[in-house]
Design a protein around this nucleic acid. Structure first.
Ligand SMILES: [Mn+2]
Ligand SMILES: [Mn+2]
Ligand SMILES: [Mn+2]
Ligand SMILES: [Mn+2]
Lengths: 149, 149
DNA sequence: CCTAATTTGTAGCCTTGTCTACACTTTGCC
DNA sequence: GGCAAAGTGTAGACAAGGCTACAAATTAGG
């Protein structure tokens, strides 16, 4: 029953393919978000204290040290970090480059949020999640907006 | 060796607790992002065609129908949707309310992005991920910005 | 130097989210 | 009305990300 001839309202929906593609992109971003946050955090720890120990990473990240160690293992598997037992974590060239990009993007997102009126603390908090979903094109737009506002 | 007295550069890092809290919030947002996208999508399908079949949801979402069915099961478990075998999915009152909020937020985020100069297609794509990490405070700021720009 | 505290590593276990493969209903069409 | 196609559901596998509990190594004090 129902919908004899689907001629009702039908507000504009994107095409199936386009929508699937968008959702897929968001899913991919999620899967790399963790790695991005870890390399950024490790890079910060290295810069500010000269070392990045798993326990520090875990505390900063708010997870158990076992979880941090597993994620660091993934970082190594993906060629972003190195570490030897009981020796702290370091970033590969690739890892440091990623950290640099991620850090810059994080700052840009925070700046944009603040520029449109989001309170700084809130901007900082929201940016931690938002940053991983902002494309390069959008980042360019952010830069232009900040430059000429 | 190294760091005899950590008096080096030390660019401002947030406190451990604050940073852990931020990361924790981003993690939580991620875990609800999927549910939000599903209820929004189901609501759209119901509005535009009168029914939301698992296969449609799967195609729109870009996953296998088995995956969609499992996520729909989670929706039901959490009191957001109902369904009987071979009969399509419907939203509970709570689910429809969530869909409404999510839809409005999605639009607001897209509008904000466009307003700061992000190309519409890009805005639409990025918003799909960003939306789940924008707090109510930030949304208010977005509204004000859009109103008085 | 020895011992105790801290850090690190490992070993399960759980939940989510994804897939493929197979079985069962329902639908559509001749 | 019956058969093929389409849709639906279930089962089993995997990876990621989280946890707790325990074991081993390192570091720090006395
Ligand atoms: Mn982040
Ligand atoms: Mn960040
Ligand atoms: Mn979304
Ligand atoms: Mn959305």
């Amino acid at each position: 029953m129902a919908a004899k001839m689907e001629r009702v309202a039908k507000p504009q929906m994107p095409t199936e393919a386009a929508q699937a593609h968008r959702f897929g992109k968001a899913r991919t971003a999620q899967s790399t978000a963790l790695l991005e946050d870890y390399v950024e955090l490790i890079s910060d720890l290295l810069a500010s204290s000269g070392e990045a120990r798993p326990t520090d990473v875990a505390r900063r990240f708010g997870v158990s040290h076992a979880t941090a160690i597993k994620t660091i293992a993934r970082l190594k598997r993906e060629g972003l970090a190195t570490s030897k037992p009981y020796r702290g974590v370091f970033l590969t060239q690739e890892g440091e480059a990623l950290a640099e990009r991620v850090r810059a993007r994080h700052r840009l997102v925070v700046d944009l949020l603040v520029a449109v009126g989001v309170p700084p603390d809130c901007a900082e908090a929201d940016a931690e999640g938002i940053e991983h979903h902002v494309s390069d094109v959008a980042l360019d737009a952010f830069r232009h907006f900040l430059a000429r506002r």
